[in-house]
Design a protein around this nucleic acid. Sequence first.
DNA 1: GCACTATAAAGTGTCGACAATATTGTGGTA
DNA 2: TACCACAATATTGTCGACACTTTATAGTGC
Lengths: 230, 230
Amino acid sequence: MLLENPTKQAVVTTADKVFEQLQYAIVEGEMTAGSKISEPELAKRYQISRSTLREALNRLEKCHLIERKANVGSRVVDCTIEGLLELYITREALEGMACRQAAINMTDEEIADMQAMLAKHAGDKALQEGVAYYQEKGDVDFHYKVILGSHNQQLINLICGQLYHLVRMYRCQFGMHSSRATRAFTEHTNIMQAISDRDGELAELLMRRHIAASRKNIEAKIAQQNSVIK
Amino acid sequence: MLLENPTKQAVVTTADKVFEQLQYAIVEGEMTAGSKISEPELAKRYQISRSTLREALNRLEKCHLIERKANVGSRVVDCTIEGLLELYITREALEGMACRQAAINMTDEEIADMQAMLAKHAGDKALQEGVAYYQEKGDVDFHYKVILGSHNQQLINLICGQLYHLVRMYRCQFGMHSSRATRAFTEHTNIMQAISDRDGELAELLMRRHIAASRKNIEAKIAQQNSVIK
DNA sequence: GCACTATAAAGTGTCGACAATATTGTGGTA
DNA sequence: TACCACAATATTGTCGACACTTTATAGTGC
């Protein structure tokens, strides 16, 4: 199950392919978070030269999946609670604004397209109450379309090209299958309504609340776990 | 006049040095926006191998100062009106949120420090009414401190590590010396007040208005120029 | 004269080797 | 035993050469 990224560019070179494989490996946790990366070892495993590997590593660094220090080496990023919450706060800012811009800039066709998608998801949802998988995929689809709908290349690059790799990583590693699927679907519907009403202010507000709700949901879970441990 | 970037990491390797020089050259317009980059030529000019140059180019791509296409080459990014406006909208979202977080997370010492800085700027301002230079520098200082004050590594990296390179580029290339210096200073003061009151909501609102005002100022200028041409 | 193809030139991607730097291990001294 | 200095090892940074792709050029047929 590979969620397609709309900003993904054609893979032609070997470095591209290795980048994709490594990206997958990091996101899925095959390369454990926080672990050190040995260039010679990885190069050997993927049967490529170190130059090519370093090219791939550079791209991983671009999406914040690894961190490099000069003359020392690279590490897979660490997944921490603080990092996750910071990510949500950043998403709230960026996706909120993207949603406002979407309300302004989306074409009528794009809006109709999204409404059709939501209607389809509604059908799926009715069929399989509470099943997370489709909702997960639907969630990502919805958010991607809103972001692309902003028609703001700067926002699109930042969110889809960088932030969402990390989002997917946290999703996988923390095993986050939204426990608020039906709730989220309702919120999506309301956001869609604001967009089609061309109400940018409301659209932004609703998107921010939507993301903030997810964050608070996580914070609550964490707090709960901690109190149990104590 | 090189505005220091708080996220700048120590320059040790040759690629680091070349990266800095190229960055400077692009921002200042010595390498014209939109122009193609020849790896062999640049490598020769800086007396380094292509591998090292490519390492530097990778970092330039990371701050969105150049764009690469596989098997074709790199170009310096283009400075367009649309790009500038998109940048401002992104800043509005990110710096707005950073300001909210700053109101929550800044230490009392940091707040006192910023207030002292503003007081100093007020003195400068009284001395040299309307002189843009100090205000320019002061503006950047102020915004950097707010962003760092958010204590959100994600936001700090995105804004200081990436967005602000582009901001500086546009500033240089479009020759933008704020025509609303005293106005901006007042706005900074008000933002500072909201932060020291720990009023995150207001702090975000004011920062967003502050940036939106700059954007509208530019939009107005553009519209004016266009009407003159017609 | 124009379009299309084949060929040459230039440019980017990849490789393996060497140089510079960091890390580890060892021995000696207080 | 703890600590420091120094040597050995491993890892990263840099280099020049080769392979493959794209682009420019010349030539041929219609």
